[in-house]
Design a protein around this nucleic acid. Structure first.
Lengths: 188, 188
DNA sequence: TCCATTGTACCGAACGATTGGTATATTGGA
DNA sequence: TCCAATATACCAATCGTTCGGTACAATGGA
């Protein structure tokens, strides 16, 4: 049964896209207004505390999507390799094949951290936990698993940065291709 | 013989630090003025085209420093392992042990790209070239060398992002520790 | 059934503050 | 006497925000 989206949810999605495109500071209210199709004053109806609330809502939505696309496949049940496949697919979808940025990156720059305190850290830690769990499941000792998880998150974030800088999604695609073996294989 | 810094050069260094702290959009003229200790008129004396010029100068200075700290050790003469040691030391210095961000990241966000077109890409490509050269020198076939270089840059950028998000330089330190073996060893 | 009331969704216009930027004047060392 | 360097004063534009208000649907007592 299809859930009917309220206008607010649509606005949040558009706002999240805008923040992921421009970062917190460059995503001005006029831009957010244009992106949502809502007047600036209307945005204050849904987000009484203004830009700060919009950033919080966008962050929460991003967390939802990451949980759905990445963390649930990772921590779910069933064959490990199949779940890793779902995970790479989920990563590709959430990051738009490497074209869309990560708020772990953008929300640790400029004034964003004040608006969404702890969000980037929480998101990063959730990913670290999920990847570490998988690495342990794959047979790595606890300490190794943590290191491997860190490398996984580093590769995701780094690939997104490099893809942005080069104007090519190739680095992100290659990173996705080697992610499963990073988590599964012995010896790094 | 110590080169005497002109007031402009000192300003450029301060401006670069500011851009690396806040990103392009959040580094306002008032902040840049405070950081340099120069009034607006002085800033416009040194940088006639305003913020854009400041970003260009900061970018050029960052390139200088990266060349000196990372690329020259990599492409220089002498024992390979010794040069890699210099490189990790240089990386640690330039990125302040993981506390300072990279303009390859920050200058691909918001309005920065319009002010410094191609800069982030050029910087990323310079690093890729240097790392690929080293990987080839270490015995990797050309194609593998390119992949390894890409992974090196990805790990650097990713580690900086994660360090920022977690508020800890540990991920960056661990990344530096495994960089040499990534470039030297066979099989990734 | 009528209609006053309330709540939701939205908007245009304006707010004070700050943005990046300029024009003109003054200072001070070579 | 230059002229680089800095100060003072100002600008239009945009920033995030708030105000006063409209349109409309839902509610509920008489």
């Amino acid at each position: 049964m299809p859930v009917i989206k309220s206008s607010r949810d649509e606005a949040v999605d558009a706002i999240m896209r805008e923040f992921r495109k421009f970062g917190y500071d460059a995503a001005s209210l006029s831009r957010l207004s244009a992106a949502t199709g809502l007047g600036k004053s209307s945005l204050y109806h849904y987000f009484p505390n203004g830009k700060e609330d919009m950033a919080k809502a966008a962050g929460a939505r991003a967390v939802e999507l990451v949980v759905e696309a990445v963390i649930e496949p990772l921590t779910g049940e069933g064959d490990l390799k199949a779940r890793l496949n779902k995970t790479t697919t989920g990563l590709s979808k959430f990051y738009n094949g490497g074209k869309s940025s990560c708020l772990v990156d953008l929300f640790t720059i400029g004034e964003a951290e004040a608006a969404t305190p702890g969000l980037a850290k929480a998101m990063a830690e959730a990913l670290l936990r999920a990847f570490a769990g998988v690495a342990e499941e794959a047979g790595h000792p606890k300490k190794d698993a943590k290191n491997i998880a860190e490398r996984a998150v580093i590769e995701i974030e780094g690939a997104l940065v490099l893809a942005r800088a080069l104007g090519s999604t190739r680095p992100f695609q290659r990173m996705l291709a080697r992610l499963p073996e990073l988590l599964l294989e012995d010896g790094g």
